[in-house]
Design a binder for these strands. Structure first.
Lengths: 190, 190, 190, 190
DNA sequence: AATGAATGAGCGTTCATTCAT
DNA sequence: TATGAATGAACGCTCATTCAT
């Protein structure tokens, strides 16, 4: 009955991700996005009331996607297998980290407490809680040192993704070495 | 007979750092800076042709300052002492990390290739090269695993500072645990 | 076999009046109107080429409605009865005044000279001319001072409706006092 | 020390008045004003933080100007002289009425309670209070009918200025007739 | 050396209007 | 007939930057 849409949400989120990673929250503009999608800025406002909404909508989509991938972890038996899987998932979604940074901008700057923001606040916590089960398993199985705080273990693992590979070491070697440091440390045991 | 200068560079960099950390690159404005220094925006333009220049100048200053601190490492005997020192320096200058993020904005976004940016690009590499001597020492002393790439070791250490302490674990415990993971890993050795 | 029309003109004018009074000319938008009528904005464009047309159409309808009411005046015998009737009609349609204000916006601001606007310009004059018969009667009957210009008498009466009742004097008393001033003045006759 | 200003406040208020009268609050835009003054929109923002501020500033200036003129009334002896003076002042500042209408827009629409708005709210009340002294005098001297509410008397007088002179009756005659109606009414006394 | 004045470009947002189904 | 999709122009506002004193 109406005209056919010139773009779909998936495409929009793709471009939004690209721009958000490249320019950050403030550098992300409707002009930029509209230009890339070859639509008018106004068109975007048909679907998102404002910049904040667009970005939080996208963030939620992205985080849920990550969580979804992550939840596959439960299908694996034993801590060590799960650990390997976790590292892989994290490195598959390298960008999420950057996005979370951008997300914080949204939260810090605007007062209004929308449902979107509530959701967004909950998602990282969900993730932490979810991963805590995994940590627990590791500690139960006697694999993980029990005296190291859970939050640090999780944070540590998640953060490795952000280590800059300045010398272009091949990905496989890179990840392998990271796993080794995380598990056994970089020091030689005597 | 010239009028007395109303501001000195040290104060300027101090305020710039404060604002950059508080508002990020885009949120950093000449108005804000001029207001805090109680001079006019126009005055800033006498010393810095544009925002980019001001920020890169400051970045260089900050990085050199960090490098300067870092170089004290050579005064210490033995790898393990140096390692402890390194962690301490890094955690003393936590903000540098944030600043480097802001710096990337400058580099990524603006086209013009100034000497300033060239310098800025080189500094992290300088730092890496400098730390490589430290890594070498660790490997020579048989403390550091020799098969792990130097770049990863350095990156890993530097990155720990960015792990978010979501659960507010006390700083001393936090750093201690981080050291343990880095050196011995989070897995229990059988 | 045509689809049933989703809106009728009467409802449209009702809602238009409501919105025009509430938001003024500039605050009146097609979105607002379409929302209230539960149709799409586009649908309105089937009937009215543009905002201006819609509003002038409505204005004409409203004014003619007022004129229609007003013409009942002829059914009354004698000037004094007609005078009372006139005041009542005016106060019954207090909003018309506001609407006329809004109407002026249309006339002043937009260049294009449509038939609608011509009509709209003529209506107040029609009203004036019509009321002149009433003034004439008053003067003939020796009730109205003959040396006061007709236009002023009419204007004066019509304008009273716009006097702001800042202190919330009860309507009956208010109107009564107005009538007294109009007829006998506010000064005490010696 | 700095560049010479391209415009002064008086000129600005003049143009603002013009535009406000012609277009009303919503129709008044910074573009329009800047164009007329041949400066950039941005320049206006150096002096007025936002549209609301500019307009309220101007309103206050205008109202205070009117009040200032009005207060000369006290220098005249006797109610009748004061009455004549009042009518003259009002007709000299015909536009004020329109401006007050526009002012109401500002008040109605924006929530924030600035000092400017407080002032603006008080000014009409000041005027009313001030005129009440004049009304009191008239009633004391036995010139004004004491049973007509003060608010109506004041409102009535102020409103006459808005009667549209559709037939272009000469100003002197117009004002003279208005005075007669106000004081003696339009009816012939028997 | 320092400043207030001024500007142009850009941003987020809204709205009247047009298009294609 | 009616609609959702899309757009361009404009608005309020901010900011980096330049100018003239």
């Amino acid at each position: 009955m109406a005209r056919e849409r010139k773009f779909n949400t998936v495409e929009l989120f793709q471009e939004a991700k690209h721009l958000l990673l490249q320019h950050g929250y403030d550098g992300f503009t409707f002009s930029l996005l509209a230009d890339r999608m070859e639509i008018s800025r106004a068109a975007l406002y048909k679907y998102y009331d404002n910049k904040e909404n667009l970005i939080t909508d996208f963030m939620i989509y992205e985080m849920e996607d990550f969580l979804h991938d992550l939840k596959e972890i439960d299908k694996l038996e034993g801590f060590e297998q799960q650990f390997d899987f976790l590292i892989d998932v994290i490195f598959k979604k390298t960008e999420l980290h950057e996005l979370i940074k951008a997300a914080q901008h949204v939260m810090d700057r605007t007062e209004a407490a929308f449902t979107n923001k509530e959701k967004l606040k909950k998602l990282p916590l969900d993730m932490y809680k979810f991963l805590q089960r995994f940590i627990l398993l590791g500690k139960d199985e006697g694999k993980l040192k029990s005296h190291i705080p859970d939050g640090l273990i999780i944070g540590f693992i998640l953060q490795t993704v952000a280590i800059p590979n300045h010398f272009g070491i091949p990905k496989a070697e890179w990840i392998h070495s990271i796993k080794e440091i995380i598990t056994q440390g970089m020091f030689i045991n005597k």
